[in-house]
Computed example of a mutant assay.
Amino acid sequence: MTAPTRHPAPTQAQIRAAWEALAPAFDRRITPRSLLFADEILSGVRVGPGTRLLDVAAGSGALALPAARRGAQVVAVDLAPTMVDRLVQRAHDGGLTETEIRALVMDGERLELDDDTFDVCVSLNGVSLFPGLHSGLTEMARVTRSGGTVLVAAFGLPQHVEFIGWTIGALKAAVPGFVPLPADPPPLPFRLADPDRFAAELRDAGLRAVAVRKATVDMSFASAAELLDTLRGSNPIGAAWLADLTESQAAEVRQILDGMLRERSGGGPGAVLHARLNIGTGVVP
C-alpha cells in the first residue's frame, strides 16, 4: 500500500455501486449497532406522534425505524436500492406500516421532495459522506419547514472512533508502507470531526441556532474477526483497506487486534470499544 494519489470525484453511479456492494454487510453489522444509540442521537430533537420526519442517506433504518416507533410519520431515502430494500424488510419485521414509514430510492443532494414538508430532517453518517456536503445540507434545510430542525450526526476523529483507529494501528504494524487517512483534506467520513467546521457548515446551509455536541457510544466486539467485518461493512474506505491485504497480512492484523481486545477486557476474547460522534443541530429560519 503506497501513498494515496488524488483521483477524480466519483460519479453518482460509482457511489451507488459501492454502497450497493456494502449493503448486506452494512445491514448485518452497522445498523444493529447504530440502533443501540439512536435514542442518544434523537434526543437532540422532538420526535413523537405526528412529527413529520425525513431521514436522508438512511441506510437500512438506524434513525428512521426508532423515529417511526415513536409515532413519527417517517420518509427515509437512500441512494442504494438494496439499502432501501433492507430498511423496508426491517420495518415489516417490526410491524411498521407504509403509513408510518416510507422508504424511497433517492439522491440526497437532489431531493425529489417539496419545500417545507418536514418538521425534522436527520442524517447519521450519511449527508457527511456526500461529495457535495453543502448541497446535501441545503437540501435538508429546503425540505424542512420554518422553525423545524435539521440534525446531522457524524464521526469524530479516527483516533476517537476506536474500531477504526485500532485497525489503522494494526494495519500500520502489519503492512509495510501502509498510509492511513490523509489529514488535509480529511476523507469524507471525518470532515465534520472538527466541531467548529461542523457548525460553520450548518450555518452556511442557512441554519440558525446551530449547536454541535459530542457523544461517546459503546460498541461491543467479541473478536477481531467481528471488528474487521464491521469495518468492512461500514464504508468503502474500510472495505478497500481490507481487500488489499495478503493472507499473511490479514492474519497478522487479526492477531494484533485480538491482543488489543484482550488487553482492553483484562484477558477475555472480546471488549467494548468507544466511538465519538458529533451531533449537530440547526433551526430553519
Rank of each mutant, 00 (worst) to 15 (best):
L42G: 03
V175P: 11
I101H: 10
T117M: 09
Q12I: 00
A275R: 11
H274T: 14
G148S: 06
A13H: 01
R142K: 08
P32E: 05
T281S: 14
R197L: 08
L257D: 10
P4K: 10
G238E: 04
H92K: 12
Q255C: 07
Q12W: 00
D204H: 15
L42Q: 04
H134V: 02
I41R: 00
L96N: 06
V45R: 00
L261A: 08
V56T: 09
S223P: 13
T51A: 05
R90H: 08
A250D: 15
G94S: 14
T51R: 03
G169L: 03
T138I: 03
S220Y: 12
M219C: 12
A38M: 00
L228M: 11
F190E: 02
Q73G: 07
E98A: 09
R28D: 12
A64C: 04
T144D: 07
R142L: 06
F37V: 00
D39I: 03
P32W: 00
E162G: 07
V152L: 10
S34R: 09
F130I: 00
A271F: 08
L87G: 08
V283S: 12
Q14N: 01
S34T: 04
T5W: 11
L228I: 01
P8Q: 02
R197E: 12
V45W: 04
R145H: 06
M1L: 11
H134I: 00
P4M: 07
T117D: 04
R208V: 13
P269W: 13
A91Q: 04
D116L: 06
Q159P: 07
E226Y: 08
D55W: 02
L96Y: 06
L277D: 10
T99C: 10
V88S: 11
F26Q: 08
P158S: 01
G282D: 13
S265D: 09
T99N: 15
T138P: 09
P182T: 08
P236Y: 03
L171V: 06
P4L: 11
L242F: 15
G148L: 06
I168D: 11
